[in-house]
Design a protein around this nucleic acid. Structure first.
Length: 546
RNA sequence: GGCCCGUUGGUCAAGCGGUUAAGACUCCGCCCUCUCACGGCGGCAACACCAGUUCGAGUCUGGUACGGGUCACCA
């Protein structure tokens, strides 16, 4: 068989050579330990936690090592492509502080980096050059099998209890003569380019950076390199791109492990250096006591958009993923509560292998912790940004009452052990609404044990002695005096012992004040809250009850 | 079904032949306390199973079970 002739028939317009590509996309000039890696999402319009999970690993490893982190859009499946998906993806990554050094930008006509293009469909010529090369080497051939014919082959194989696929004697177009091929092409029959696999009982062995040694049977399949539209399959694109983009590491989900033999085969045949593979664990979800893969349809928490909509602080999501990813992160965080999580040294060695469950309770805990560590001004900026997008009315309040909002965020925050009231920005809008007249509402009932007349007397007496300039302890002394004067027990224990001797206890008094001032029985320190609200609002809210 | 990957409390996990088997989340109790939150103390709760190697096994080997992945002109 004249492979050179075959290659010219198949790729008449392809004139480039692998050598030219090597020259065009040279080795990167980086220190030997610098990691170059990427994420390669498909523009389907759905960005999920797994994308972020892998992105975070790549981003950390590359940036910690002084390497390069880039974005490649794997858009080889035109059918699944959704408009605006890339823009959405980049914005989502940016929201979670994943920044790319080079790679695709939302505008397809623009590029950022010397290994461009970063959209796979724009790299067609590169793949064609390599495909032609493999054809010349006798490692690839055109296959004219239709989907129906392949189905038939599979049925036959299943009936015979043989492995399904195109290989060995089932690769019926493998040894077509040049004339037969020419004839079919002239007849306009569509074809795919298949790799010419070999019957073998050998094994391959790959040192996975996360999992250690991976052993599996060597590839024997005539898998597809180029689809009938001349666009490569994932397998071919991965090998070609990660070689010419000079990735040192390939970080991807464990679902790729089973196609590793194909990739290893291609790197071998092309005589290219294999990148370091890092196969990450799949994120799981528990349902009815069983673990299962997170599903796009059933689990909203899989979509990154969920975290944005809920207003979960991006740092919290990052820290949450970090605790899943690196078992020593939590320890580090406890030892270094004040450091930015970017300062944590991320290591592949500490990565877990088995699939982690996404535990929203844990996320909430981390989130409260992260928010409690932030200064009020920083919180304000993040919260306002979120409100502008998801809760515009609240954003207006935050702007109109800027100083009061900052003061409100500072309640209980400046202490050595800050309060952890805030979980996320959506919840913050609910929690903080009593600070604004526009959103203030009475949510809890006044205590039933206290009759209305007594309640009014409490408020009247409180207002009579209230001095906005009192400090916290002066204020509380007055509250205690009022409590005693109106026949309430200052110590809850006294009341518990002899309830008939009192109208109630100090908890009743402060609860009524708290409900009147904040609308709720549970709220932060009343003196502090009062000073955020200001004297006018304090008096107004209490007077309303008299 | 073939091939792969995995399996320590409900969850995330430490552990690298000898431990009372860490820690975090959740839940429960107590303390602190004007409520709540925070914080402190304490509690419930685990090495999937069976063989083997060994003086000794969560840790090594084999098998079984269970879970997951993959077997496309999808990535």
């Amino acid at each position: 068989m004249n492979y050179q002739l075959l290659a010219d028939i198949l790729f008449p317009d392809v004139t480039g050579t692998p050598e030219e590509l090597e020259a065009k996309y040279p080795e990167r000039n980086l220190p030997s330990n610098a990691i170059v890696t990427r994420i390669g999402p498909s523009p389907t319009g759905f960005v999920h936690l797994g994308n972020l999970y892998n992105a975070l690993i790549g981003e950390r490893l590359s940036h910690q090592s002084g390497g390069v982190f880039y974005l490649r859009i794997e858009d080889t499946d035109q059918k699944r492509e959704v408009d605006g998906a890339v823009d959405m993806l980049i914005r989502a990554m940016d929201y979670f502080q994943i920044r790319f050094d080079e790679g695709a930008v939302a505008d397809k006509t623009q590029t950022n980096g010397r290994y461009a293009p970063y959209y796979q469909r724009q790299r067609k010529e590169i793949y064609q050059i390599m495909a032609k090369f493999l054809t010349q080497q006798g490692r690839a051939y055109p296959c004219f099998l239709t989907a129906e014919e392949i189905d038939q082959i599979r049925e036959q194989q299943t009936a015979n209890k043989q492995d399904p696929g195109i290989y060995g004697k089932y690769a019926v177009h493998r040894n077509l003569s040049i004339e037969e091929i020419q004839e079919k092409i002239n007849a306009g029959m569509p074809w795919v380019l298949r790799y010419r696999g070999e019957e073998t009982d050998k094994f391959i062995c790959v040192q996975d950076a996360i999992r250690g040694k991976l052993e599996m049977p060597r590839n024997r399949m005539d898998f597809v390199l180029l689809k009938s539209d001349g666009i490569p399959t994932y397998h071919f694109a991965h090998v070609v791109d990660d070689h010419f983009m000079r990735s040192t590491h390939v970080i991807r989900g464990e679902e790729w492990i089973s196609s590793l033999p194909m990739h290893v085969e291609l790197f071998d045949v092309l005589n290219w250096k294999q990148p370091v593979y890092c196969h990450t664990a799949t994120l799981m979800k528990i349902e009815d006591g069983k673990k299962r893969k997170l599903s796009k349809r059933k689990d909203p928490e899989l979509a990154l958009a969920y975290y944005q909509q809920e207003g979960i602080c991006p740092d919290a999501v990052r820290e949450f993923l970090l605790t899943l990813l690196n078992s020593n992160f939590e320890e580090w965080r406890m030892a270094n509560p004040e450091l930015d999580c970017q300062e944590f040294l991320y290591t592949i060695q500490k990565m877990s292998i088995s699939g982690a469950l996404v535990d929203l309770d844990k996320l909430r805990d981390i989130s409260k912790d992260v928010l409690s560590r932030m200064p009020a001004e920083t919180l304000y900026i993040g919260w306002l940004a979120w409100c502008k997008e998801y809760h515009p009315e609240f954003a207006e309040l935050l702007i109109r009452y800027h100083d009061r909002s900052i003061a409100a965020l500072n309640v209980g925050r400046t202490a050595k052990k800050p309060r952890k009231d805030l979980e996320n920005w959506k919840q913050a809008c609910e929690f903080m609404k009593f600070y604004y007249q526009e959103t203030f509402a009475i949510q809890d009932e006044m205590p039933e044990e206290i009759d209305e007349a007594t309640r009014k007397a409490v408020f009247a007496e409180y207002l009579k002695t209230y001095d906005h300039t009192d400090d916290s302890s002066q204020w509380f002394t007055k509250v205690k005096a009022l409590t005693e004067k109106l026949g309430f027990a200052v110590k809850p224990k006294d009341y518990k012992k002899n309830p008939e001797q009192y109208k109630g206890n100090i908890v009743h008094v402060t609860n009524m004040l708290r409900i009147a001032l904040t609308g709720r029985a549970n709220a932060p320190d009343l003196w502090e809250v009062s000073h955020v609200l200001g004297e006018e609002i304090v008096r107004e809210r209490l007077t309303a009850w008299i």
